[in-house]
Design a protein around this nucleic acid. Structure first.
Lengths: 160, 160
DNA sequence: TATGAAAGACATCATGT
DNA sequence: ACATGATGTCTTTCATA
């Protein structure tokens, strides 16, 4: 199992806020020697607790209108067809730049997080790209109007 | 407007992959002088196109079972009550560590991304913490079983 | 595992093309 | 936009506890 002490957690929280702080700065904030911070971070990386370092893009590049789209396919006679059809939908959606996330939901479902410049474009996208997919039992669109927690995820997901 | 040329985009893509690469390494990959890369990155930061540098936590710290939970509140006689009630729900959920994201959806809706160690715990959480909220018209649980795109978001959102 | 010190690598900045 | 060089800072390593 994963064992983290207070120092590890403190370091992780600081890096989450700003991964570009230097070891010396972190050391200063936590009142520890640089070599200790360096050692801990190295271990956290080796243990895979720090998965990777990345950037979050700013608001200018983020889509202004977001929605979660839940798709449910009709259950066909042949079970194997459903499986391949779901995979196909996921693959297709994944290739679109305005589809930020694609995930499977149960045997016959797919959820996607979709972003567009405006609510109108978003609706059009859903109508013209998703609702036209054949043999869908259900398409549910859940608009996202304002984040209360985790708003950073858009800048994290959006591509260039 | 946001204007990015190919070099900017190339740099952003590289930093998204690994924000700890040195300027010299990036310069080498893109066959450009270090000074140019340094200049571009500085500009990207100043322009707010690079919002922040952060870390993504590894799988060990991530919840194994995920679901999107969509809550719709009953529309009350007094309009202002709905507004405050929705805000209250969002605030409450935001404080819970296993609630990774909270967002508003329309006038009467809240969407949350919830994570737990196991599907059983996840169900229990939904039953005991969400479904018990008063005056809900609807609670929809969309399980997330497997990511096709954007899987990194869990490690990005999870706390320590 | 923690620490201190020392060596090497790096970012940063100024200047000029 | 690119090149070069000077400077100071940071990372990294290693010896020691």
């Amino acid at each position: 199992m994963v064992q983290l002490d207070d120092l590890d957690r403190a370091i992780l929280r600081i890096l989450k806020e700003d991964a570009r702080l230097t070891i010396s700065e972190i050391a200063e904030r936590l009142n520890r020697p640089e070599s200790t911070i360096h050692f801990r971070i190295k271990k956290l990386q080796e243990r895979g607790i720090i998965g990777k370092y990345t950037i979050v893009l700013g608001e200018d590049l983020q889509p202004k209108a977001l929605a979660i789209v839940y798709i449910q396919a009709e259950t066909p006679i042949i079970e194997d067809f459903l499986e391949r059809y779901i995979r196909h939908i996921m693959k297709t959606l994944s290739l679109l730049p305005n589809v930020l996330t694609v995930a499977r939901s149960g045997k016959d479902g797919v959820v996607a997080l979709v972003g567009e410049e405006s609510p109108e474009k978003l609706n059009r996208f859903v109508d013209e790209t998703i609702k036209v997919l054949p043999t869908l039992k259900r398409v549910e669109v859940i608009p996202i109007d304002e984040f209360g927690k985790g708003s950073g995820l858009v800048g994290f997901l959006v591509g260039v």
